[in-house]
Amino acid sequence: MTAIREFFRKYGWSYLFILPSMTTFFVFVFFPVVWSFVISFQKYSIARGGMWMDPFYANYIQAFTMLQGIFVTAIRNTVVYTLFTVTTNIFVGLILASLIQPLSHRLRTFFRAAYYLPAVTSAIIVGMTWAYIFNGQWGFANYLLRLVGLAPLRWLSDPDIALVSVTLSAMLTIPATAVVLYSAAMGGIPTEFYEAAELDGATGIRKWWHITVPLIKSTTLYLVVLYTIASFEVFERIYIMVPSGVGNSTQTIVTQIYNNGFKDFNFGVASAQAFVLFLIIASIAVFQFRFLRSDVEY
């Protein structure tokens, strides 16, 4: 007891510094997360509060079975979207960062800034722009198809194509964060490695593949986790590009959570689906950490 008192007498003041951020975290993050988990077992109304479901997991059953099992379709759509966007974003980010790395410091800084510009553009604006590009009647994508003599497509109104169009829009957007982080990581690799490789006769591509790529593996892990989480939470792009849906082909996990929570006010099922999303993301993140973690130090 004396030791605890002594600890707080000596260090207690320092906790005051983290008090504001911890308060914010508990009030706006921790408490809502715990509360939504509780709600996932309840029939909840803002006015009347919650009533426990019987059986207690009924919302989870309903989450997967209601509306012709649309949540399962939404999970499948989200996984497809994530696979393609994460892979492309990582690859494009790596290539672009590698291309600007040999440039002078000023040019590198310029390109980093230029590539980051889209990241500060509102997701709403980006979504609206892509919606215009893919408009079936007067969109730019069909204009290009007509130029080369191809028939126009119903990019955002054909259930077989709509998810591809939305995914393509994400793939064709420059992954600003990846470019900047990869560029910074490449800048931190000691030049001695490259000099030694050159003495051994290694070419540019070989140096890149055997030195650069392995040594930025920790950055790759971070980006894969970051982009996976962001892709699983895709919402604005879908909501802006195809607000009325295209059959069920563009439904994702978060659009389902949104529909149940804010269209039907079925907070219990929405919370259950949100918790399922949390489990999926956490499982994938653990898997990614296990197989991509790096022991490289330099």
Binding site: A131, N135, Q137, R154, S157, A162, P243, S244, V246
Partner: peptide, 11 residues
């Protein structure tokens, strides 16, 4: 129009 069925109200 080609997007009939999923057109936005404003369009």
């Amino acid at each position: 129009p080609p997007d009939f069925g999923s057109q936005k109200d404003a369009d």
